[in-house]
């Protein structure tokens, strides 16, 4: 996850999922993020309109107060 260390705090993914309801879409998106290797994630926004659900999902890389990988990365690269 070296590249991920450069992400300031979080990465958002937004898409439109064909799903029966928001619960199903939430499940799909959560599993998708887990498959991608994101362990700390949340669903920021869900809205069912039309044939599916608009979703904004977030994977936290560095939560405030945590250990910031980009500090070390910056040091490695001369700041």
């Amino acid at each position: 996850m070296q590249y991920a260390e450069r992400i300031l705090d979080a990465i958002d993914m937004e898409t439109f999922i064909l799903a029966r309801d928001e619960g199903e879409a939430k499940g799909f998106m959560g599993r998708f993020l887990a498959d991608l290797g994101f362990t700390d994630h949340d669903i920021v926004f869900l809205e069912q309109v039309g044939p599916g659900v608009r979703v904004r999902a977030r994977a936290y890389i560095h939560r405030p107060g945590g250990s910031y990988g980009w500090l070390a990365e910056g040091d490695d690269n001369g700041g």
Binding site: F16, L18, V49, G50, P51, G52
Partner: peptide, 10 residues
């Protein structure tokens, strides 16, 4: 068609 259904809904 799928884009149309989304756009109509929105």
């Amino acid at each position: 068609i799928m884009h149309i259904k989304v756009c109509e809904a929105w």
